[in-house]
Design a protein around this nucleic acid. Structure first.
Lengths: 322, 322
DNA sequence: ATCCGTGGTGCAATCGTTTGCAGAAGCGTG
DNA sequence: CACGCTTCTGCAAACGATTGCACCACGGAT
């Protein structure tokens, strides 16, 4: 403890405070120099015990190996850091048991707020936090009645549909992702509605649910290619699924774009550098993370915040256009 | 505090302990039931204040958006969780300033141990922890004189070289990644040595350093393709770099494998499902994470641990063989 | 009947901070 | 010179847990 060094007692605490109110400038300097000298670090945990705030924000994600979530988490961490908070992240694998135990662990650390990135239909995390009075925000996936920062997925699906319709595609397939995640649901819904409105409703056999990773895309894509009349275009609700679908198209001996066009979602960095660059619906992942922190901070200080829908943009590339 | 509920005082602490020694079975049950009823959670922070252990392991990585690191972190988190520890992860962006501040923040939380995944030549984190007496382990990248769990990168580079030599390639390029990371250095070194030994030393103009991401691979690949006599094969020290190189090869109007063969490193999931599946040197990322936790735990309990070199394996795919 | 051992419980100190309150200077003013 | 005011500093009580030690009652042995 730096104090015992040779300075006075707990006046040091004040001297090290951000404002250092009620302490002479001279003392402040002396204390700070000594602290630096001795390599003193105030114990955030102990301080939190007294103040009641851990200055810790918990982040729940399905998996960090999903680049999309990793990107969002990165921006959350940066934004939280700028506001003086640290973050803890937990993989829940879209599984109720994991979610429970990870959330429990966070609450045991007296987390100040939670950002939920893995919201799932019928999942109770948001409700539980609401009941406990712990501030929280949903990001990426939404849930009726809870504050959320997401992209306008319905509209994103529609953009993809309009793009393909414009290129003349009439028999199309959708790889829809997890049936209980709002992202998959809304993107699919927006896409189907647009085709319906244009007079080309999509048969249910052409809409296949899947995991959100490459593996899931490969499996679902293979299924689509095995249909008696395979689609001339596929909409994958995220880029990794699209990557898997690419594999399926190749395995089926078809050529990308010429035989089967492909649209992904999120526009991750590597979409543009692939051997055949991927057409994708771009969402501002970093912005989403930043806004979610901002909303959470507002909630934490008692003021209210509004849900946000970020507008998506379609980026046409070689998997759909020459 | 659950204790005031109607039970006795701090005997509750003992009753809630893992062993519950020195408490009657009856009391234990009563306390536990009541705790569950009241939704009581022991405050890990407060407990840590007393016990001196935060049961927290810090993990330093360059970036989580690098799937390789995200995969390692996931397995670290699982292994740590199994041993009763939580983890905190921090992006350091391979930048000294970030490293300092993130490590500081961790030390302020009285971290029990650190896993360093972003070791960099001339970086001081490992030395500092050593001086402070905080247990630590390096993972993925090594540093002379410090405990580390890595793959045998030198050998991995040699495997890639032997594969290409066997296919008849004589004029090859290397995209070497960061010059200060042991991974890039050793993989490149192993590769060059093997070509040298075979009688085809690689000219320095054919070895280009880069960032570890797709963007870096694209830039370096473009540079290689602009050489008067472009290489007939490229070794990229990781898969993302290879992905970028694919883009560069395409942009140069060359065909993958036929004109330019390509070998990546790490064999991430999507390497196999790409439109043109990528030949890659496989490393056991999950195993690496697990072993690093094991080694760290050993260090934390005072016993010593040995550095590990995991053996890599080359997985041939369409970017090199028909 | 006394004594000892033992299992169960309570007391109180402690971990490193923060913070309301009181006390001690220093200084200007009436 | 005394008084009040303003600064600055120290005291001590929290925050929520853990844990060595003392204490109690009870049963069995002598």
């Amino acid at each position: 403890m730096a104090r015992h060094a040779q300075v006075h007692i707990s006046t040091a605490s004040r001297a090290l405070g951000d404002d250092a109110a009620g302490v002479s400038a001279e003392t402040v300097q002396r204390v700070r120099e000594l602290a630096a000298m001795l390599g003193y670090r105030r114990d955030v945990g102990a301080a939190g015990l007294r103040t009641g705030s851990s200055r810790l924000i918990g982040v729940l994600v399905p998996r960090l190996t999903d680049i999309v979530l990793a990107t969002i988490y990165e921006s959350i961490d940066v934004a939280a850091g700028a506001a003086g908070y640290s973050t803890v992240v937990a993989n829940t694998l879209d599984d109720a048991t994991h979610r429970r135990s990870r959330l429990d662990a966070m609450l045991s650390r007296r987390i100040d707020g939670v950002i939920i990135g893995d919201s799932h239909l019928g999942d109770t995390a948001a409700f539980e936090l609401q009941k406990l009075g712990v501030p929280y925000v949903l990001v990426m996936r939404k849930l009726e009645g809870h504050l959320s920062i997401t992209t306008d997925d319905h509209r994103g699906g529609r953009l993809a549909a309009e793009h393909l319709l414009g290129l003349g595609h009439r028999r199309v397939g959708v790889i829809a992702g997890d049936l209980l995640a709002s992202t998959g649901i809304e993107r699919t819904e927006g896409f189907r509605r647009a085709f319906e409105a244009a007079g080309y409703p999509i048969d249910d056999r052409y809409v296949i649910s899947s995991g959100f990773d490459t593996r899931g895309g490969l499996a679902a894509g293979t299924q689509l290619m095995k249909l008696a009349e395979p689609p001339t275009a596929i909409f994958a609700v995220n880029d990794f699924i699209a990557l898997g679908a690419m594999g399926a198209i190749r395995d089926a001996g078809r050529k990308l774009r010429e035989d089967v066009a492909l649209v992904g979602y999120n526009d991750i960095d590597l979409a543009a550098t692939l051997p055949v660059p991927l057409t994708s619906v771009r969402s501002e992942l970093g912005e989403m993370g930043r806004l979610s922190v901002q909303a959470l901070l507002q909630r934490m200080e008692g003021s209210s915040a509004e849900s946000v829908l970020l507008p998506p943009v379609l980026v046409p590339r070689a998997t759909t256009v020459g």
